[in-house]
Design a protein around this nucleic acid. Structure first.
Length: 302
RNA sequence: GGUGCGGUAGCUCAGUUGGUAGAGCAAGGGACUGAAAAUCCCUGUGUCGGCGGUUCAAUUCCGUCCCGCACCA
């Protein structure tokens, strides 16, 4: 009998957190967030964390667990998740995972590549060169050093090219050689819920939530983080647009419209990603907790 | 009322020395192997403000009208 992971995913603002909370209460267990931004304790309003009452009643892991100054990536998340699941399963048979970061969800379901760590100095060195010499330099470097990767690479995608170059400089090997080597979670039973709703309604809800965030003090929260606006972990919807306002690049009204727009764009990308999990149960946030319980019990038995 | 500048894709605009048009953003679809709320790819027919005129042909030139904006009265 395997331990069970209920994995709830879907676009931003669809209502995942509430569903996770309810099912966690039903199963008397804890929640792990698969969200690349809610883990930062410096980010609150703009990142739509569960409210304090929820956080108090049910332990939420990977929420407020890190600082924006920590390095954060799928590997950090994966290790954290693996360890936390092991701990939860010491006392119960079920855990809830909820989040909108597709890449992190995929790490849980399909594992991650087992790769060496790239020294920070190499990353910084390449970043410096890219800033100075541009994309052409990057493309040329990758083409010369890792032609195998380059042949199939998206040549315009600087992040991917940069990663491949970092990897090569650190190991003298092509990252493509590590494609099949995967580290996986132990054998758990996954019960997948893909939460979605009608597109127009979703977008409406996103817009409304941005308004609420502004009323709750998002502007002030962003202003306090202004000095850190360059760091990677703050390339975050809801903050970067307000930074632009503080930098006098646009009006506040424009900035808020951009937050809404980028949130909608993001939701669309999430939906595209999650469509790959065809074995998931498609549910709407209106699905009653009774339905969820039923689906859970059905899967728990089998 | 006069003068000037505008009126082109949902928005901001480019352009056509006359042969019915194209970028960015939006929107839609897709990808995604340690930045992933990131990054990237694909998709552009719209009475080129209305009506007349010149022309083989007008969104482009001319006239006129309508609508913005600015300045002058």
């Amino acid at each position: 009998m395997h331990k069970k992971c209920v994995v709830i995913f879907g676009p931003t603002a669809v209502g995942k957190s509430d569903l996770a909370y309810q099912i966690a209460q039903y199963c008397k267990t804890e929640i792990i967030s698969a969200d690349s931004r809610q883990c930062f304790r410096e980010l609150n309003i703009g990142v739509a964390k569960p409210d304090n009452a929820m956080l108090k009643n049910i332990p939420h892991h990977f929420v407020n667990s890190h600082s924006i100054h920590d390095t954060m990536n799928v590997k950090v998340f994966f290790d954290y998740c693996k360890h936390t699941l092991a701990t939860i399963f010491k006392t119960t048979d079920t855990a809830i995972i909820v989040g909108g970061t597709g890449f992190y969800i995929d790490a849980i379901l399909n594992g991650i590549q087992d790769l060496p760590i790239i020294p920070l100095s190499i990353k910084q060195n390449i970043q410096h060169n890219v800033n100075a010499s541009g994309k052409q330099w990057l493309q040329k470097q990758v083409e010369e050093k890792d032609p195998v990767f380059f042949a199939h690479a998206d040549k315009e995608n600087t992040h991917r090219l940069q990663r491949a170059l970092e990897f090569f400089d650190a190991t003298q090997q092509s990252i493509t050689l590590f494609k099949e080597k995967k580290t996986r979670l132990p054998e758990y039973d996954f019960i997948l819920f893909n939460v979605n709703k009608e597109r127009q309604m979703l977008y409406q809800q996103i817009d409304q939530r941005v308004e609420i965030m502004m009323k709750s003090g998002l502007l002030e929260e962003a202003e306090n983080l202004l000095q850190y606006q360059q760091i990677e972990n703050l390339q975050t919807i809801g903050y970067k647009e307000l930074f632009a306002f503080f930098n006098a690049e646009c009006s506040l009204t424009t900035a808020i419209e951009k937050v809404k727009q980028h949130s909608r764009n993001y939701a669309k990308r999430q939906i595209t990603w999650f469509n790959r999990y065809t074995n998931a149960h498609y549910i709407t946030p209106n699905s009653s907790i009774e339905q969820l319980k039923h689906l859970f019990d059905m899967n728990a038995k089998s």
